[in-house]
Structures are given as structure tokens and as C-alpha cells.
Design a protein around this nucleic acid. Sequence first.
DNA 1: GTCTATATGTTGATAGAC
DNA 2: GTCTATCAACATATAGAC
Lengths: 193, 193
Amino acid sequence: MDKKNEILNEAYRLFSQKGYSLSMSEIAKAVHIKTPSLYSHFNSKDEIIETIIKTEIENCFEAVHKIVSDLKDKNCQETLSYIFFHMIDYCKKSSRPYFLRHLSLMQNKKLRQMCTTLLQECSDCFAEHIRQCFEKGIREKELKETVNEGQIYLYISMIQGILDSEFFIQDKKFRSKDYAVKVWEAYWDGIKA
Amino acid sequence: MDKKNEILNEAYRLFSQKGYSLSMSEIAKAVHIKTPSLYSHFNSKDEIIETIIKTEIENCFEAVHKIVSDLKDKNCQETLSYIFFHMIDYCKKSSRPYFLRHLSLMQNKKLRQMCTTLLQECSDCFAEHIRQCFEKGIREKELKETVNEGQIYLYISMIQGILDSEFFIQDKKFRSKDYAVKVWEAYWDGIKA
DNA sequence: GTCTATATGTTGATAGAC
DNA sequence: GTCTATCAACATATAGAC
């Protein structure tokens, strides 16, 4: 791997730990060069952070696309549970939860604005797929007739909530696969026909 | 108000914005004294932060107690919806969402440990009340017979998820009362007898 | 309690040699 | 590309006058 990518990898790791307050000297130390040498690869700290954020959100966008695509032949239950478990898996992977949370608290106004725009796009795409799946489920009598947008919002909140639980309460119980399975079963029990 | 409390109030506000990286000079400026004068009231930056964190979590603990108490004569639906909307209201108030999220990302190890312990206690207390309410609901045939701990986890995840939505996607839709109402109705529709 | 002056360290960034 | 040397700005914290 070339030095530039090595820098970006370590910057990603450090940003996940410390957020915007990571320092150039920490990055330099992690890639075994001196601080000024970083400026041969990037013009500023913000340029490094901007690069890792853009890359991460692009990856996230692709992951969402990958998860929701190629599921058209599956029924509503299979699709919703597949998306549920795979979104949780993806968002929990390695230091991603910390990275995303630091994003939402970053002070740098310009970078914050960029994140908001990109994440909004990603979220809209996700929500649209879910909506179509619900409509299909109602049409094909797989879901209760009473199912409406409230259940869609609940679906999205449920995923967010599971991902968030481990942050507020550092309890193993919230991180086990079993926990997510039980939540999913409870949810499905409430919407199935 | 005396200077000490004025400092704590401004420190709370600044911590909500910047997290642990708030500076002593920012606090000093906000309360219209010079930086060294802060040390007449507190021994260190960490002492200030520790104080505001302890106060905030104590308040949170009391709020949870207040919300869950005096509801014993109400039925399950009333209790669960009351707790749902009041917990969301409380946690969304002013800068509290930012404060709590900065807590969970704080680098200072000693302070992190303190938060984890205190929040765990608060969460356990909350979960126990919810559990009792569900048991009562099943006993009195207000809830479906199939309701189990999965629905309890879903209830808690749902609240977390609603509180989190506005952080990842800065969309007005997620902040409206209407959104929470729809989620609640969808949830209740899934567990009622 | 509040101030000025100061100590000591770290930050992001640049100049210029190799 | 990487380095040493250096910069101005900022951080937390202390000493001591008033």
C-alpha cells in the first residue's frame, strides 16, 4: 500500500476514536513519518478528514445499494429481515459506529454540511426501498391491511435504536445477535397478516 | 446566581457543543472573567466536567423516576404511551441530545467509566419498570398472549431510534411530534390483544 | 475572587536542506 | 518524499499582587 492510503487508513482509525480532534502528529506517528511529511501528501488536516469522510459515506451508499438490490424475487418477510440484519451487521462493523457518531458531532461547519447532504441522499434511497417492499407486502396480503407509514417509521427507528443501544448502555446483552433476533421477531409478529 | 453555578451552566452549554474539547478560555469568556479566575472555583477542567456530568445524570435519573412513578392505577396502554412520549420529550429537551452523545464519545477514561456506571443504573431502573408494565398487561389480557421480551426490547429500541433519527438525518420529518405518534400507534397495534 | 504575568506543552502549518 | 528547525496560536495550569 502506498503512503497516501496508509495515512488515510490510520486517519480513519484515529477519527473513529477521537473525532475531529485527532492531531496531525498522531497520524504521522501512526504511519512512521514526521508531521511535516504529511503535507507532501495532503494540503491540510481538513483535506485528510474530508477524504476519509467522503470515502466512508460512499462505501455506506454502496453497501445500502448492495443490501437492497437483488431481493426482488423474495417475499416481504424475507426482504425486510434480510435488510434488517444486514444493515445492523454493516453498521456495527469494526469502528464504524464510532466513526458515524463522531460525524454527527463534528464542529467543522463545512464538513458537517457535506455529511448532512450525503447522508440524506443515502437515507432517502434506503427509505424508498423499504416503502416499496411494504407496498408489495400489503398488495400480496403478506402484511396486515392496517399497516401504514407508521410501521415503516417503526422499522427504521428499530434499526437505529438497536445500533444505538450499545452506546448509551455498555451492556453485552445489547450487542448479541440474539437481541436483534428477538426484536425482529417481535416486530414481524406485529405486522404480518 | 453565584459565579460557580454560572460557570457550570456555561460549561454544560459548551460541552453540549464541543464535548470534552471545550476550553477553559471559552468558559471564562462566557462568564466574563479571565481564565485563571476559574481556578478559584474549581481545581481543574476535569473537575468542572465531572460536576456537570454527575448533575446531568442525576437529573436524568430523577426524570426517569418521575415519569415511571404514579402510574400504577393506569392501564398498560396508558402507561406505555405516557412513558414513550415523556421519555422522548425529556431526552430531546434543549441541548440534551448533544450532551448525551458527547458523553458516549468522550476520550477521558476515568470520566467515561463514571458515565457508564451511572447510566447503566438508570437504564436498569427504566427497563425494570417497563417489564412490570408488560407483565401486568399480559395478566390483565390487555396485550396479546404471544408478547414476550422481544416486544420489550423493541419498545426500548424504538425510543432510542426515534431520538437518534434526527442525528443521522437532519430532516424535519423526524423531529415532528407526528412522527413519534405514528411510530407509537404502529407499535401498539402490534402488541394489543 | 479577580487580575497580570508567566510556565510549559501542543497544535496546524511552513521554509528550506537533502 | 522526508527531514530539521521554526512559527504563531492555543491549551491547562500556577505565582503572586490587589
